[in-house]
Nucleic acid binder design. Structure first.
Lengths: 260, 260
DNA sequence: CATTCGATATCGAGA
DNA sequence: TCTCGATGTCGAATG
């Protein structure tokens, strides 16, 4: 990691370091007393105070106060940063075109400014989501019920994509809607829409079902169910199956698999 | 601003600085090669790579990669940070109780670490939101249409809260749904739901309207309208009124008021 | 404490 | 480019 640090620089030296860092596509950190103005999707102003400024090589621009996770002001990736000197203050501007947004930081005093070329080739691995739930159910369909056979995933219908389509032991059609968190009314409604897709349309599945006099079962699969959702669910004749999303990383799976 | 910087510190020195900073409730920045594990609402792992770590005195803990506005991992305010040494690595842990969440950062190599006591007494002033739009319309109802009289704000119905309820010059009921940005299909649907609330329920307003043979008008108030939203809007007989959210800071208002 | 809702939401996927 | 949905959404206001 190549880096540089300047302590208590004057305006010109700080400006020089910023230009150098932008040229080298480095990540910049500035502890400084500044004033911030934003105009774009909204409008904001932050009066003089000490903050931390972070400028990333992808154009992201963050200003952090000493509280909260969220930056007090920011610009998204691909924003263009430029610096200049005005009235012996270092000014940093970050702008983007669509939507038109401009962030202006007036810096009165820089405590210290650093830049570094960061090397990071890793991406975050996560688990505990809807997709993982789907993977798990496809692998172990019996956790829905004995005899359940998934036939399709992300099955396209009028109102969107059905998470998992399948058949039960009696060959009834099953429509599964997955939620990784507590399912609300919206999930029940969505499942209801999928069911109507099969009722309304001249769907191949439906024809087959009519001929065989089979049922179409809607199943909401989630770790838990909201009270309001439960009501609607019963009214609509939709079933609920409690399933926790798997909290296991792919890496872990690999290791498990490698062990064999 | 009191601050301290350590370049290329060994594990013990870095640990010492972290402890000192935590004690002094300073804001810490670390450029380091690290590995991150998170377990809580979800589960994640980030393999070895160079990142920026930001620890704030309110307990917020951020890990930034060289891309994106959002931190790759984080902990919210009030989380507890502690550091220790293990296998000649500096380990930083941040945990909170409800929900139970634990973030572990293993640091193999610190490029530099800084801390500073930041002084910032200012809060962000903002304008250009739905709330500002609502305030403005309550103050100047004629901008919706001549003779419009707002009667209630955040009026509770089955499907949520109606932003503004009122009557037109002919005493017809008006339901206003406000959006500070371009309104999409979802906004039209929401307004539709509010309208059905008045149609379905034995609502006092509805009874009054029936007796007086009045209409119920749905108005979507936003700076602009998406194409798809426009279609649905016409189909549902909902009206659209173009209104920009006021982009004026309270500070400016104060100055205007003080001028009198 | 829990719930609800807005946000300069951000971000990624798909059309 | 735009739209849509998920997010460890965050954060504030409210009950």
């Amino acid at each position: 990691m190549k880096y540089k640090i300047l302590e208590n620089p004057n305006c010109e030296d700080a400006y020089g370091l910023v230009e150098e860092a932008l040229r080298k596509k480095a990540t910049i950190t500035i502890y400084a007393c500044c004033k911030v103005t934003y105009e774009g999707r909204a409008l904001s102003e932050l009066n003089w105070g000490e903050r931390i400024i972070l400028i990333k090589p992808d154009g992201s621009f963050l200003i952090h106060q000493e509280k909260k996770v969220e930056p007090v002001n920011w610009q998204p990736p691909k924003s263009k940063t430029r610096g200049y000197i005005q009235d012996d203050n270092l000014i940093l501007e970050s702008h983007r075109r669509t939507p038109k947004e401009l962030l202006i930081v007036e810096i009165r005093k820089v405590q210290y400014i650093t830049y570094a070329n960061i090397e990071d080739f890793e991406e975050l691995e996560q688990a505990g989501y809807e997709k993982d739930m789907g993977d798990m159910i496809m692998e172990k369909p019996h956790m829905i019920e004995e005899g359940f056979k998934p036939t399709a995933r992300e099955y396209s219908v009028e109102h969107g994509f059905i998470d998992i389509l399948g058949k039960d032991r009696d060959n009834n059609l099953m429509i599964l809607e997955l939620k990784a968190r507590k399912a609300g009314v919206s999930a029940v409604k969505q499942l209801k829409r999928y069911l109507t897709d099969f009722e309304d349309d001249d769907n191949d599945y439906l024809k087959e079902c009519r001929v065989q006099k089979k049922k179409i079962r809607g199943l909401l699969v989630a770790p838990s169910l909201g009270n309001d959702a439960e009501e609607l669910l019963e009214k609509e004749g939709i079933e609920f199956v409690a399933v926790e999303p798997p909290k296991e990383l792919k890496r872990d799976k690999k290791i498990t698999l490698d062990a064999f």
